[in-house]
Amino acid sequence: MQLVLDNLDVFLVGMRTTATLTLVSFAVAMVIGVLLAACRVSPIPPLRAAGAFYVETIRNTPLTVLFLLFFFGLTKVGVLFGGFTTAVIVLGGYTGAFVGETVRSGINSVSRGQAEAARSIGLTFPQTLTIVVLPQALRTVVAPIGSLFIALIKNSSIASVIAVEELVFRTDALSNQTARGIPIFIGAVIAYLAMTIPSGFAFAALERRVAIKR
């Protein structure tokens, strides 16, 4: 364990990159997800089709493939970003598809009467969605969104494929420099648990706070 304590800064810097990557990607994913859900419940057929196409394509493609496609493929057509930005786009776009499906299931769980009441007082579709339905829908999906957040923390490790120096990348490099890997592995596991377990509690607390008691 001395090895871990001696290299504590490596773990901390790695954790910081992982945390930043996760938070920024999560923000992107939430925006994409809510927009996708809005598209998929809208009365406008082209938007519904585009939303469905995006979700089905992205959800069924491995994240590793998306990373490589972006990093080795799209550079061929002049789409060039740094490693971190690429990782944010890929992770945000991937998680966004799952957020979209989750939010959509939340929207479907809001009782019809809510939307009917909103329409009967003269709200338009965008107003019905943003003022009445979405706030209730988002409250019901806090727990599954929390699961997506935790999955995102773990998925951000795949950014190491394109040399983003997050926790797995740094601990793997450290492990290669030393003759023994187990202490470093244990250190990395503890570092991840230190992020995933509190996130779980935070979302559980948030859920209790915003849950609609019926």
Binding site: K154, T171, D172, N176, R180, G181, I182, I184, Y192, L193
Partner: peptide, 23 residues
């Protein structure tokens, strides 16, 4: 269950493939 759900699969694979051979 909490342990194996709490960290990335990639880390586990790296450990099994790169670190275990050292032992």
């Amino acid at each position: 269950v909490e342990l194996f759900r709490g960290f990335p699969l990639l880390l586990l694979i790296f450990f099994i493939f790169f670190a275990l051979p050292k032992y």
